[in-house]
Design a protein around this nucleic acid. Structure first.
Lengths: 233, 233
DNA sequence: GGCCGGATTTGATTCAAATCAAATAGTCCG
DNA sequence: CGGACTATTTGATTTGAATCAAATCCGGCC
């Protein structure tokens, strides 16, 4: 673990309530692994072995059924994931894969479980973390059930843009294929959705997308969209 | 609170780790409210005032966008809900409504927040609870993204049936309209989905549904469906 | 620079599910 | 018991998004 990782770790929800000495003890049980793009961290159906915390790089969680696969969520630096599988000692519901090269803090499952049980501050941090995740997932379910493809894309882009008023350029968390999965549509449909938004001032190449007038997009999306989409943060 | 509620409370994940004396102190801060069918417990967008724990009756969580509304999840006796909004002190993402008359344990938000921070056992219980919810929601997202309407209904019915091998009759957690919302389809489509499953030995009237041969249904659903749907329990 | 292979866009067509529209079955009251 | 709802089923039609099928763009690499 590098010293430059510490600020990141201390800022994460999971550790936010843990004091300095406890934190050191916890980290002593962990190790860091550097992984190449598309490395698999864990596979759906397997027993939970490690809690993973992203130090750098980007990770995608995928659900699969038969030969189909859909991205469920993106994770980036500072995120801890698969906490639920680890604390419940249950098989993973999802497959986690590196979307690019990155470094992952690995915390053996048994050690983590014991620590959560023993350390109230860590448990409280986990409550905060999981609460944020709950809200993210609820937002996604509402999107899937209530919005059309174009509306979902609008909401997704707006969630990426800090509540700007002027023109913004946002960076998609992955390629078009992955974003399509996250939105629950095919890449072709995503492409069409982008095309449909072009007249509203959305232009983009690769993973950079520029929103000329967020207010206008917000108005368009808001006409039918949800109150307070509230992304995890 | 009635003495008959205690076994239920002690069995719930939230309190599973809390000792007797602490539990008594916690419950002292709460009160019980009896509510009629379709009473609203909390409304999307409002600030979190109470943690709710279902003592009896059935509750539905609804997400709304514009004038559309979709049921996101059912809750029954022993479930605690909107923990995330309460601990994060954030506005509700969902509206909770009684689906039938029932009794709800109300725990003032500030008191609960303080208690979670102070009592490791409660925080740990909350971690278990939220972990279960995470898995439920992930299951639902995978269903929405990867399965057709008929497959989703099959999976839903199978999740209701304890892993029986012989014929079972399961009770739907709500009327057809609500189940349709939970599955992310219209009531008409649900009706057609039931019709499509009839040849596979699914018969039903009202909220009772009989599965003649769970194994056959499981095979049908499993052909394309997910490994380990893993409902909350 | 020029070639290869995957990613993205675009077009045509199909299909699952929504919507529109009744008909029918249940339920709750008076 | 009958009437008035409301819920559910069924049928016809429309439609949003998937699928099929190319064309084009792009990045990496020799």
């Amino acid at each position: 673990m590098r010293t430059t990782d510490m600020p990141l770790i201390r800022r994460s929800r999971l550790f936010s309530q843990v004091g300095e000495p406890d934190l050191a003890a916890m980290l002593a049980a962990c190790f860091v692994q550097t992984l190449p793009a598309s490395a698999t961290l864990c596979r759906q159906g397997e027993k939970a072995e490690f809690l993973h915390i992203v130090l750098s790089g980007r990770v995608g969680l995928f659900g699969s059924a038969g030969h189909e696969e859909a991205l469920v969520e993106f994770f980036g630096a500072g995120d801890a994931f698969i906490v639920p599988a680890v604390v419940l000692d249950a098989p993973y519901l999802l497959t986690a894969r590196m979307l690019e090269e990155g470094r992952i803090l690995m915390w053996p499952a048994a050690a983590f479980r014991a620590q959560v049980r023993a350390t109230g501050a860590l448990a409280y941090g986990a409550v905060l973390l999981l609460s944020g995740y709950w809200r993210t997932l609820i937002g996604q379910i509402k999107d899937l059930k209530l919005l059309s493809a174009i509306e979902r894309l609008s909401a997704f882009l707006l969630a990426l843009a800090p509540r700007e008023t002027g023109p913004v350029t946002v960076t998609l968390p992955g390629g078009r294929r992955l974003v399509a999965g996250r939105l629950g549509i095919t890449p072709q449909s995503l492409s069409r959705a982008f095309a449909a938004l072009r007249p509203l001032g959305i232009s983009g190449g690769g993973r950079q997308v520029t929103i000329v007038d967020p207010a206008r997009l917000r108005e368009f999306a808001g006409a039918r969209a949800l109150k307070g989409p509230e992304r995890r943060d």
